[in-house]
Structures are given as C-alpha cells and as structure tokens.
Design a protein around this nucleic acid. Sequence first.
DNA 1: CTCCAGGGCAGCG
DNA 2: CGCTGCCATGGA
Length: 265
Amino acid sequence: MIIDHFSPAMVAGSGQCFRWKRMDCGYEIIAFGKRLLIENEGPDFALSCTEEEWDECWAHYLDMDTDYGQVEALIASFGDRHLSECYAAGSGIRILRQDLWEMIVTFLISQNNNITRITRSVEALCDAFGGEVEGSERRSFPSACDIDTGRLTDKSFGLGYRAEYIAKMCEYVRSDPDFLLRLAKMAYDAAREALLQMKGIGPKVADCICLFGLHHTEAFPVDTHVKQLLAKYYPDGFDTGYFAGYAGIIQQYLFYAELRNAKKR
DNA sequence: CTCCAGGGCAGCG
DNA sequence: CGCTGCCATGGA
C-alpha cells in the first residue's frame, strides 16, 4: 500500500496517539476494537488488514482523505525558516481520526503529565476494562459503561487526582448516551464550548479532543511545550490564521520537532 | 533534595 | 476578569 506523507515512527512519536506499539517488524495499532500491523517505512507499506477493512476503517483512521501536499505547499509559501525545519523533521505526521471517547479520557489523563505515564495509564485501563481484540494480546479501549469507576483510584492506573475527572465523565456519558453523538455533529467552536463545561477539561485538553477526536484541524492546542516554543521562536506572535483550517496540523509539526530537540539534549 | 510532565480548579484580589 | 497555590505520580 502506497501512502504519501506518512511515517509510522513520526506518528507514533507525535504525542497524539498512545496505543501505537513498536514491534520488531513495525507498529501494532489498537483502535476501534481492532488491530492493525504496519510493516516497513514507506512509501510502500505492508498492512495486516484486508482490502475491505482498509476501505471501511483504516483508510479513514489514517486520514487518507486529507491532502497533506496542500499543507506542505502552505508551509513553503509561509516562508519561515523554523517552521520549514520542523516540517522537514516531521513531514510523515498525519492527524489520525481517533475515537472521540478514547480521546476524551486519554487527554483527561494527559494534564500535568508526561507521555510515558499517559501511555502506561491508558494501557492499564485497557488491560483492566477493555475487550479482547482479534489477533492481539492487547485489549480494546473500554467504553464509559465498561469502566468500573470505583476502581479508578487503584494505584495500578497511576491516575492520581485525574481519577475523579474520568469517573465523573464516565457517569455523565452513561446518563446522557447521545452526548458523544451530539459533539460529533458540532462545529469546532460549539464542540470546544461544550467540552469546556465538563469537569477536568480546560482550553488545552478541549483543543486536543477537538483536533484528535473530532478532526477539527483548525484547533491549535497550546501546552507547556508549545508555549515554550512559541516564546522561543515567535516572540512577536505566531499567525495561526495564515494556515486557516490547518493550524492544528502545523501545531503537530512544531510540537514534534520541539519534543525531538528536547530529547537530544 | 527539587523540578517537570501535551493543565485545570478553586480561591482569591 | 487575571493571578496563585495546589492537585497525585514517577522519572530525571
């Protein structure tokens, strides 16, 4: 399978997904209760799924209907040295179309936390409450009903004070099962406002959920890393408006490059 | 030991 | 409004 503008290693390291696991031969992805194995580094990839599964699930998940060449051209026309370097380092990043509920819980966990611990907590929640996944030893991400909220404070999950936020979110979604469906139909501004009403969701988490769970690519999450990088490289301000609906994709290139720079030192 | 991690909340003024 | 201290947890 030929996939342009795609590097599994870059996506896995971009901090948007927490269930891409590095295997000897590639990456194992658990999403929507299914498993996908991607082998090799492109542009010709070997995928474990059938053509039918690709068409009805994974092509959409990997955001095949977005033209990343257009984003590339936009960056070139912007003419900014730093952003161009970030793009060169992370040009294989795509914004995955992940499950909304999974993103809500995952980014509730993410607050004042680091990627290693987030990954561990998410995997522990799946191990405890998720269902079996065909072809994998790992388990699916649990629904609001599957999660035993009374056990969320167990030390094994390492959730700390975030356990209460997740418990409240589970209880709310159980009481209002259409909440997620309504969110999915809203435009960015409305979805963001609705998310901000929920306990534990502030501006940054709301934007991550909008970007990664609702694919509102105009969302531009500002976390501690992005705040630092903006101050360092763009002290006079960064014009997200130039990228219009693609600001969130730009944010991912900036974020990824900043993370890699930090790792080198 | 302190500082930090894909922050947000409550309690101030 | 904006600002500040605090919130669990574990790794550096």
